[in-house]
Amino acid sequence: MSAAPSRVLIVEDEESILLSLEFLLGKEGYAVTTARDGAAALREVQARPPDLVLLDVMLPLIDGFELCRLIRENPALRGTRIMLVTARGRETEIARGLALGADAYLTKPFSTRDLMDKVRGLLSGNGAPQSAG
């Protein structure tokens, strides 16, 4: 791990949620980039692979699951962690996300502390995938 701040991509189509995530992660010192739809997100990860993607499931153009699969299929993005942020709390969907290669998930509405704990966990030194309960 370099000393450079971890790069986090936030993919979220709800403006206000995006703003809150941007604020929280920026305050913690991460290098934050944003995307408002799946296609933009894909371009972004390919251009500059992030360490972590906070991925909303319901996205215009390419949805979160599909994006998750595409990232996992790309060998260049092997080091990228994925955390699904979903408003649908159904277990089948969580299971589907994890099966597609997501490292963690978070259900909306979330506690900011929970969010930051999970982000820190995923970005901690060893880089091992963590699943947050």
């Binding site: 709800e14 206000s16 809150s20 408003a87 509405p109 502390r113």
Partner: peptide, 25 residues
């Protein structure tokens, strides 16, 4: 129901997030 739930959670998420941001900062 699942759609309504989703639609309700979205504004709730923003409200909760910003409330916590405001109280923590």
């Amino acid at each position: 129901i699942s759609t309504v739930t989703h639609e309700l959670r979205t504004p709730l998420t923003s409200i909760r997030a910003f409330s916590e941001i405001l109280s923590d900062n």
